[in-house]
């Protein structure tokens, strides 16, 4: 009974945060809502990172390549067939003639993300520590250049246009909640627990017969699916190009995870919402904003400086992130009350 109540809280709090952010957005103007929607897409991406990095303790710089592949898949497949020749003149025949709807495009984005993560995970999941991090960075570089120059599978250097903009508040919130639920189910499963055991003590886990390679590969594939899914959601929000799915997004989403707390699902959600919130507020303030009668108009470039400084300050004061890397739990009184 107490365990199930704990599980409800562990899942409910991050999911409620996502829903609360979506509800809060409705109070604001349409232009501000764009930032909220973007923040919710960031939640989906950071949760995807968490599913692997948080549970395994292995840093990956390559997850944005799965996001990019997901975006490419959903984007290429959902642009109306009549408009593909104009936007993607060199597209392969099969892709040129195939168009799918919103939901199938997201499902296919997740499938492609998973398949690619499995493919690159087969050799890479044998690595640990810094070597694994650098190898995943290599994946990012390769994917970035392939998407940039291989025009048979997408727009190449061009920015996607004419992708149906189906990612509004509802879709962004729903997809972020789906990502949270999948990550939660995984971390509560036997596989998730075993992978966290390898994170805490690799030698002990091996000693009891755990295949670290296999567990990491499962998590990598799952988080690849979530990242691809998030990429699909992202391309249905904004016209994207390869530059928008490269280094900046890699480092800002990793920073979100670290600031929230790398080892908890709550941390992933809190970090994504907090950093996105500050970043968006400063972006708005650079264009002038009125707060309770006060006109705030920050000089150009303030956003980048302040976000960087705040991230450093948070990590100095709370090295384990805003949540301390812990999940949401029942209040003390509730735990005592429900003791057997």
């Amino acid at each position: 009974m107490r365990r199930s109540a704990g599980a409800v809280v562990e899942l409910g709090v991050p999911a409620l945060l996502v829903v609360a952010a979506a509800l809060l957005a409705t109070v604001f103007s349409h232009s501000t809502q764009t930032y909220f929607i973007n923040a919710l897409v960031n939640v989906a991406i950071v949760v995807a990172l968490y599913a692997f990095i948080g549970n395994s303790g292995v840093v990956s710089f390559g997850h944005i390549s799965f996001v990019a592949l997901g975006a490419w898949t959903a984007g290429v497949l959902s642009v109306p067939a009549a408009e593909k020749p104009a936007i993607m003149p060199n597209l392969a025949h099969g892709l040129r003639t195939t168009t799918v709807g919103n939901v199938p495009s997201l499902a296919l984005a997740a499938a492609v993300g998973a398949a690619f993560a499995l493919l690159v995970g087969l050799p890479l999941m044998r690595l640990s520590g810094l070597a694994a991090g650098i190898a995943t960075f290599g994946v990012l570089e390769i994917t970035h250049n392939i998407l940039r120059y291989w025009e048979k599978i997408g727009p190449g250097l061009n920015t996607f246009s004419s992708v149906p903009e189906t990612t509004g508040l509802t879709q962004a919130a729903a997809c972020a909640v789906i990502a949270v639920v999948v990550a939660f189910v995984y971390q509560r499963s036997r596989y998730g627990r075993v992978l966290r055991a390898t994170r805490e003590d690799a030698a002990a886990a091996r000693a009891v017969g755990v295949s670290m390679y296999m567990q990491r590969l499962i998590a990598f594939t799952l988080s690849g699916a979530l990242a691809g899914f998030a990429g699909g959601v992202y391309v249905h929000l904004l016209p994207l190009n390869t530059e928008a799915l490269y280094l900046d997004l890699t480092f800002i989403t990793l920073a979100m995870l670290v600031i929230g707390g790398t080892t908890s699902l709550l941390g992933a959600v809190v970090g994504a919402l907090a950093v996105s919130g500050v970043d968006s507020f400063l972006a708005t303030a650079e264009n002038g904003v009125s707060i309770a009668g006060w006109n705030v108009d920050l000089p150009a470039g303030t956003r980048v400086v302040v976000v960087g400084a705040l991230m450093a300050i948070v990590l100095i004061l709370r090295p384990l992130g805003l949540t301390g890397g812990r999940e949401a739990t029942l209040p003390r009184w509730a735990r005592i009350g429900s003791a057997p």
């Binding site: 232009s31 501000t32 764009t34 930032y35 904004l238 016209p239 994207l240 928008a244 972006a283 264009n287």
Partner: peptide, 8 residues
């Protein structure tokens, strides 16, 4: 930045 451009 695409999200800021869209918000603009």
């Amino acid at each position: 930045k695409p999200d800021i451009a869209k918000a603009c």
